[in-house]
Amino acid sequence: MTHPTPAVTDHWDQVREAAEAVLGDEIVEYIRTAAAQPEPASELISVLHKVQARYGYLDTEHLDAVAQLLQVPAATVSGVATFYHFFRLNKPARYSISVCMGTACYVKGADKVVNRLQEELGIDIGETTSDGLFGLQQARCLGTCGLAPVMMVNDDVLSRVTPEAIPAILDRYAKQSRQDSS
């Protein structure tokens, strides 16, 4: 593979500027460095990681902009973004709760934790509460099996979670959110 060939779009300058405006300076700079590497197309996944780290998820307009700037077909970008579980295509909740469904957590009762969360939040797996505060997911093994069952709330890892502890945990984050906004 060679360096990206110059675009042949009629209004390339406008297209490029629009794409750059969507992604922001930091990511545009990252893509520029990536495009100068020997195999630019191979940087696609790391670019998507950057975008998700910055915006929390991958919107359709992000994907299109990445396709333009990296000069990779939009179908390829969308194919990659949908293939990998790690990439989110919808806006995440303020607090994203992932309950580990690894074997160790499962045998230690992670399913009961999920049930209780569903009950308390009134949402199903993959959904977000109407106020956008909590989202619920099942996670692949988080590799913290010794402390099973485990769940993550954003970047916090909570260990040895019991269904009884759920209401207090949710309260804590709801309170935190109120404090942050006030």
Binding site: E39, A41, L44, I45, V72, Y84, H85
Partner: peptide, 19 residues
Amino acid sequence: AGAFVCGEETALIHSIEGR
């Protein structure tokens, strides 16, 4: 990026290639 099949070596190679 969270795909179990990428532990398989040819899949892993494709993933490094950005596919």
